[in-house]
């Protein structure tokens, strides 16, 4: 069956510092290549947020991040859409602002949307910058066929440290890089968080380019599982994954 799917890139004027718009492009193409009728909308902060099946929230600098959080709280559409079953991919600053609290530029706590049970504080150590490899495990989301996602690969660039509460689950365990930074002394332990159909990660920018299975997981959530997602020829993505997994520093 065909179904109409709306993918919204949230506030590219505020959140889109690291090529995050690419995630919207990837989701839209992977849906369209399966014969799904897709609308890809870029939703500016000055306008009411449209209803969508799948929202992509990107990274941004401290000031725009706070502004985006305020706009989204005032607008109210995103929490309502999530309550109705919409899916969310939130990366980096976007991940922080869908949690309960995150720090502004001065380190003061700002209220987030509370779509994930996660709290971010300003890290005390160095900014986390570099390649990340993280392995899904028990508690990680399952694909439509009940499998774990393959190993996640990406690039992180953030100063925050995030603790995931009991109301959400971690996305994966860090093999290389920092991720949530919830290990001893702000060191690596877990990466990302998810609950329901909301997924947050520090793998910033075009995380879906390296993790097509994650893209398909989100598409499955957004279509409510009522569309079968035929396999695509992901040879180029697999070549990129192999190269990046080999390049990540080992611990």
């Amino acid at each position: 069956m065909t179904r109409r799917l709306t993918v919204a890139v949230v506030y590219p004027d505020l959140l889109g510092t690291y090529g995050d718009g690419g995630n919207g492009t990837i989701l839209a193409k992977r849906a369209a290549w399966r014969g799904i009728d897709v609308d890809l909308v870029h939703a500016p902060s000055a306008e009411p947020l449209p209803r969508a099946d799948l929202y992509c929230i990107g990274g941004g600098e401290d000031g725009p991040q706070v502004r985006a959080a305020r706009c989204l709280v005032d607008d109210g559409t995103l929490p309502a859409a999530v309550a109705d079953g919409a899916a969310v991919l939130a990366v980096c600053a976007g991940y922080q602002l869908v949690g309960r609290r995150f720090p502004d530029a001065g380190g003061q706590a700002v209220e987030g949307l509370g779509l994930l049970d996660a709290v971010t504080v300003k890290g005390t150590g160095r900014r986390a910058v570099g390649e990340v490899v993280a392995d899904p495990g028990p508690g990680s989301p399952r694909t439509a066929t009940g499998e774990l996602l393959p190993t996640l690969t990406g690039f992180e660039n953030h100063g925050g440290r995030t603790t995931v509460g009991a109301g959400s689950a971690v996305l994966a365990r860090v093999r290389s890089g920092i991720g949530n930074g919830d290990g001893p002394g702000g060191g690596p332990a877990t990466e990302g968080a998810w609950s329901g159909r909301v997924l947050g990660t520090y793998l910033h920018g075009p995380v879906l380019a390296r993790n097509p299975a994650l893209a398909d997981l989100l598409l499955g959530w957004a279509t409510g599982g009522d569309v079968s997602l035929d396999p695509l020829d992901d040879g180029e993505e697999q070549a990129l994954r192999a190269e990046r997994l080999a390049a990540a520093p080992r611990r």
Binding site: Y18, G19, G21, G22, V129, G130, F155, N157, H204, G205
Partner: peptide
Amino acid sequence: GADPSWLWD
């Protein structure tokens, strides 16, 4: 720069 995410921009 070590991060080619900008390719998507």
